[in-house]
């Protein structure tokens, strides 16, 4: 285990990585009182609103993250759009 960590950088399931991810959740919860349930609801609501304008939105794939910055924290949403298999207007 540690052999491979040394070789290939930090594994995703190393205990330090786990600690970091757990802390990220806890700190955001502490500061913004945003529980994982509320975060899931936020994603669902966001998808609903965005789909009114962009039907191509893949609601399942939306990723909402809170991260820390020097001056302020950042709420970031990655919203993947399904690409049409064929460019739509070539007829």
């Amino acid at each position: 285990m540690s052999f491979f960590n040394g070789l290939f950088g930090r594994k995703r399931d190393s205990s330090a990585e786990l600690a970091k991810q757990r802390l990220l959740t806890v700190l955001i919860d502490d500061r913004y009182k945003l529980t994982p349930e509320m975060m899931a609801q936020l994603k669902a609501d966001l998808a609903e609103v965005l789909q009114r304008y962009l039907p191509a939105i893949d609601a399942e794939q939306i990723e909402v993250t809170l991260s820390r910055g020097e001056a302020h924290d950042l709420l970031k949403a990655d919203v993947p759009l399904r690409r049409a298999a064929e460019p739509p207007s070539k007829r």
């Binding site: 040394g6 190393s14 330090a16 600690a19 970091k20 802390l23 820390r68």
Partner: peptide, 14 residues
Amino acid sequence: SRGEMLSVEDVLEL
């Protein structure tokens, strides 16, 4: 270095 303790960078990022 074994990935079993938060690094300085991790703590600063948090």
